[in-house]
């Protein structure tokens, strides 16, 4: 097993570096080129404030009654272990495809009834502490018409951090939903807000949660009037990255290294 043996302080420094790159380092020209699949404009307000002008109203909510759902962070490992490697990437939503465009692009009828396709800009690889500059595509469960409760469609400009399994810039990627965090780029002290999955708790070796104990779960209207996003935990980004890094290292998970490297190397 290969590991990226990066000292903790380097990770923290890298996270700090990424703070400054959170929203201002988007490549505006390229972004503008990619905007327009759905004609939705980018968002720039705090992720904790309701959007006064949501663009969607959900017609219905998807109710997939699943068996054997993870009830804890430990349970979650059953679903992480099978992957050859892990990652934790920061990305910005660039644009959303219409169902027809997504189907035409992918040939997958899933986009006609069960998922939405986005262009995203991957900007940082937390596990290897390296900036990235990768434009790729992301598939996310649910459609504007039929949404998962607490998981409205994304808006351009929103920034997330997530494990994107089997990440490949040339393929349609997908999110590992239990490890999806909205990144607040406006605050000086970058915070990660965990979307849903209240039972997945991030607890250190002393049994103490790394989440902000003063934070109360918060519903915020983003893209959809009748389906606010539901933030259940607030965690300092550097603490979260350090936690995942050390935990995954201790479990002997392999960190994905096959990225197109940094912007500089790419150029």
């Amino acid at each position: 097993m290969k590991h990226s043996l990066i000292p903790k302080y380097v990770i923290i420094a890298a996270v700090t570096l990424s703070i400054t790159a959170c929203s201002s380092e988007t490549v505006q020209d390229e972004k503008n080129d990619l905007l327009g699949h759905s004609g939705i404009s980018a968002t720039s307000h705090s992720i904790l404030e309701d959007n006064a002008d949501p663009i969607y109203v959900a017609d219905s909510f998807v109710d997939i009654q699943a068996t054997g759902t993870p009830q804890s962070y430990e349970d979650l490992q059953d679903f992480i272990k099978p992957y050859e490697s892990v990652n934790f990437l920061k990305y910005e939503i660039i644009s959303q495809y219409t169902p027809e465009e997504a189907y035409e692009f992918s040939g997958d009828d899933m986009f006609l009834y069960g998922a939405t396709l986005y262009d995203i800009h991957v900007t940082y690889d937390y596990m290897n502490s390296q900036p990235l500059d990768i434009y790729t595509r992301l598939s996310s469960a649910g459609t504007p018409e039929s949404q998962f409760e607490g998981f409205p469609p994304y808006l351009p400009g929103e920034v997330y951090a997530c494990f994107l399994p089997d990440f490949d810039e040339n393929q349609i990627n997908y999110e590992f939903s239990e490890l999806l965090f909205a990144i607040d780029c406006i605050s000086e002290d970058v915070q990660a807000y965990h979307l849903g999955f209240e039972k997945i708790n991030f607890v250190d070796q002393t049994g103490k949660s790394i989440a902000d104990s003063d934070f109360s779960p918060l519903s915020v209207i983003t893209s959809t009037r009748n389906n606010p996003v539901y933030y259940v935990k607030k965690i300092q980004s550097d603490k979260l990255v350090e936690y995942l890094y050390n935990d995954w290292l201790s479990r002997d998970y392999d960190f994905q290294t096959s990225f197109r490297k940094t912007k500089e190397e790419h150029e």
Binding site: I64, A66, P70, L76, M110, A141, G142, E178
Partner: peptide
Amino acid sequence: QKVNKGNAW
């Protein structure tokens, strides 16, 4: 994962 938010058996 592509059609559901979250993992399951």
